Simulated scan of single mutants.
Amino acid sequence: MKRSLGLASVLLLFMVAPCLAGFFDDLVREVLPSPTQQDSLDNSTIVKGLKEALATGTERAVTEVAKPDGYFGNQLIKILLPDKIQQAADILGRIGYQQQVDDVVLSMNRAAEKAAPKAASFFGDAIRQMTLEDAQGILQGGDTAATRFFENKTRPQLFAAFKPAVARSMDQLGTARAYKEMIGKYDVSPLASLAGIPSLDLDTYVTDKALDGLFIKVGEEEKKIRTNPAARTTDLLRKVFGK
Rank of each mutant, 00 (worst) to 15 (best):
T56W: 01
T36R: 10
M182Y: 13
K153N: 02
V188M: 06
K163R: 13
P117D: 06
A111F: 11
V105A: 07
R94A: 08
L158D: 00
G73A: 11
R94F: 03
Y97T: 05
A116K: 07
A178R: 13
D103T: 12
K78R: 15
K118P: 00
A167T: 09
D201A: 04
L80E: 15
A66V: 08
V65W: 13
V65M: 08
A195Q: 12
E151Y: 05
L191H: 14
I91Y: 02
I197K: 07
P198H: 14
L202Q: 01
L211V: 07
G22T: 07
A17S: 15
A21Y: 14
E113G: 03
T207K: 03
K78M: 10
M170Y: 15
P35E: 10
R3T: 13
L27E: 12
T227N: 13
L236Q: 04
D171R: 09
A115F: 14
F122C: 01
R238Y: 03
I85W: 02
G49I: 08
A8N: 01
L211I: 13
L173W: 12
K51Q: 15
L200S: 02
I91M: 11
D25Y: 12
A178W: 04
T36N: 12
M182D: 14
A111W: 13
K48I: 10
M182W: 03
G73Y: 10
N74G: 06
T58W: 02
D26K: 12
T227Q: 15
T36F: 14
A88D: 05
Q100W: 11
Q37F: 05
G22L: 12
A55I: 03
R60G: 13
A135M: 01
D26W: 10
G49W: 14
V206W: 12
K209S: 07
S44P: 02
V105F: 07
A8I: 04
I95F: 02
K51R: 09
L92P: 07
F72E: 09
E113M: 12
I79F: 01
A55D: 03
A210C: 00
Q99D: 08
P68D: 00
G219V: 06
E221P: 03
E220R: 07
V62Y: 03
I79V: 07
Q86K: 09
G73F: 12
G6C: 10
E113N: 04
R94P: 00
D134Y: 09
G73V: 11
F23D: 15
M170Q: 13
R94K: 02
F162M: 05
T58A: 00
T154H: 01
I77D: 00
G93S: 15
L211C: 04
A165Q: 15
T63S: 13
L106G: 06
V218N: 03
Q172Y: 11
S9K: 15
V240C: 01
V206K: 11
S34G: 06
M1H: 04
K2Y: 05
G93N: 05
Q98G: 06
D171I: 06
G22S: 09
L106N: 04
N152G: 12
G73Q: 14
A21W: 07
D171S: 10
A116T: 09
D208K: 13
